[in-house]
Simulated assay, not measured.
Amino acid sequence: MSGHDDEHHHPSAWGPHDWSHGAPHNSWAPLIMSIGFGIFLFMLAGAFTNGIFDASYVPLVFVGLLVSLFGLIIWWRQDMSFDGTYEPMSTGAPFKNIQIRKVSIWVFLMSEMMVFTSLFSTYIRYRTGIENCQTVFERGDWVEQGYTLEAGEALICFEPASHLIASSMWHIAPGAINTFALIISSFTIVQALRWAKKPLGTVDEEVRRKRVYRYLGSTWILAIIFLALKMTEWFIGFYVPEIEVLGIHEHHIHSLYSEGYLINADHYHHHDWVDEATGATMLADISVSASTFYVTTGTHGVHVFGGIIGLTYMTFKAWTGGYTPTNAVSIEYFGLYWHFVDLVWVLVFPFFYLY
């Protein structure tokens, strides 16, 4: 292939390609990103083996991130030149004449459904199979058995995060706000697609450009708010000032971390777990319940973070006027992913925050 610039051979982000044969399918970007992400995960796991931090793995953790970033940049560079003219189609059954990217996103979402189904089923199994800590406390036999803070022996029970999160409207506020943020973000992504798909000539192109990048940018902001509130809930906490008119008293909402609700919480005690007769405090191993909470909500958070990365690029492309009716379907495919992330949270919130 000569690579000279003519009707059928012209430079592209993929390299010289004969466009008369359709769009090129030879991108190495996904493979590079997969290798980088694999290095990152393996090295990150090695850095925290058995709960002990090993700094020797840190350089390789960053190597994995850099490789992933390199693949991502290649992918974005390739997509910037894609105008939708040569959307590759499937040629074999059962997806013949269906856009390859549409097939891919649905296959991906099916695999994601299996991931979250596994997480939810694990949670339900442990939630129903391990006795609730509050039930154990109310029964009272833990005092005689020596599962007390004073004795240092902990019993295994299930302490749902909702015991802390749903204890007041202020504790549950971050999760509730996040629910509305994701629901609104699903609306903004649809609006971005609506404006991008408006037929040529029916809307001024500058208006299209502004509407698309503003709606995508709004989705990006809402996703950032989601993760910021998630980190506040997990690690930071927040201060509530006194508002006398509304009857709100000054107090500080502690994070789950400061409350001791951790994956390795094998000697956890809640301030309500005090026996009135003896003054003893029940000590519990809640590592299983905390793990199911953090792994499930954390996995969802990673998906939100992935969406933020994609939205960063898409907002930039929209700002440059890169979306037109011919390639607006790219926003639709991302929207399918984003709606899935939203739907998962609609299930996570009641299961882990209210129940």
Rank of each mutant, 00 (worst) to 15 (best):
H9F: 15
I35A: 15
G51N: 04
F70I: 07
I32G: 01
A45F: 04
S68Y: 05
L44V: 11
A45V: 10
D5V: 14
A29T: 03
L31M: 12
V67G: 02
L65R: 05
W19V: 13
F70Q: 02
F48T: 02
N26W: 07
G15E: 09
S56G: 04
G38R: 05
I39Y: 02
G3Y: 10
S34F: 12
H21G: 09
G15L: 08
W28G: 10
I39F: 09
I39E: 06
G3W: 12
D6W: 04
H8P: 01
H21A: 11
S12A: 04
H9Q: 03
S56R: 15
G3S: 09
G64C: 12
L69F: 12
I52G: 02
N26F: 05
H10W: 11
G15I: 00
L66S: 12
A23I: 07
G22M: 14
G3H: 14
D18Y: 03
F40V: 00
H4P: 01
N26V: 08
G36E: 05
F62S: 11
A23W: 15
V61R: 07
G64W: 08
G3A: 13
S68P: 02
V58A: 12
G22L: 04
L66E: 10
F62D: 06
A13Q: 10
A47W: 01
F62W: 15
Y57K: 00
L69P: 08
G64R: 00
N26K: 11
A29K: 01
G3V: 05
G3M: 06
I52F: 08
L66F: 15
I32P: 01
A47T: 00
L44K: 11
S2M: 14
M33N: 04
S68V: 09
W28M: 08
S2W: 13
I32A: 00
Y57N: 07
A23M: 11
M43D: 01
V67K: 06
S68I: 01
H25G: 09
